[in-house]
Design a protein around this nucleic acid. Structure first.
Length: 192
DNA sequence: GCAGGGATTTTCT
DNA sequence: GAAAATCCCTGCG
């Protein structure tokens, strides 16, 4: 047996960002069940990372980043969209992995209805898009991801991981040179 | 196909 | 006042 999900999420954040690739993100809502496979992530650290929301300390908005491994951090971006992160690092430290893209696996009809498109490739190819497709809402912020309506699962044992590529993070100016974005090579589901 | 701009809230300077 | 871990629509070719 490999590591438990709990152990996997307790590793160093840049390692978790890579281990999360291939994991499944499941949301059971009153509308139905949707499942996506994580294919693109970004790590945000607690020190030496000016782009991290935790860089200036704890605020009401980023409080969930400090709750410890396996919590959800959901925040509003550009006043319009929400982004979903998996909190990492010890309690009180303030690190997280932004989920930037998923491959739709189950509940694709529901995802298309939520997104208002029948273009399956665009259901999860961006951090705001996947939040909308999975029906993740701000009240998911701070919740634990090991059980409950919104949860993470490790990849199926039969699943084989494609090669992992890293590069600069997207949409930031500070610390933009740090190669903390990870994604599967040759993956049609990642963001553009 | 690609560039440009609007939406709209929180945070920091 | 401006930037921000974004997305979508428009106009133009």
């Amino acid at each position: 047996m490999g590591r438990t999900l709990r152990a996997l999420l307790s590793a160093a954040t840049v390692e978790v960002a890579q281990s999360l690739l291939g994991c499944r993100l499941i949301h059971e809502s009153s509308d139905g069940r949707t499942v996506g496979r994580v294919v693109e992530t970004e790590a945000y650290l607690s020190s030496g990372d000016a782009a991290s929301h935790s860089a200036a300390g704890r605020t009401r908005r980023n409080a969930s980043m400090f709750l410890g491994p396996g919590h959800a951090y959901v925040y509003l971006i550009y006043g319009v969209h929400h982004c979903f992160n998996v909190v990492t690092g010890p309690v009180g430290i303030g690190e997280a992995v932004l989920i930037r893209a998923i491959e739709p696996l189950e509940g694709i009809d529901l995802m298309e209805a939520r997104r208002g498109t029948d273009r399956t490739v665009q259901l999860g190819s961006g951090p705001g898009k996947l939040v909308q497709a999975l029906g993740i809402t701000p009240d998911c912020d701070g919740r634990r991801l090991f059980r409950g309506a919104l949860r993470l699962l490790k990849p199926e044992p039969s699943w084989t991981r494609p090669g992992i590529v890293s590069g600069p993070r997207v949409g930031i100016r500070k610390a933009a040179e740090l190669p903390y974005r990870y994604y599967h090579a040759n993956c049609r589901w990642r963001s553009k």
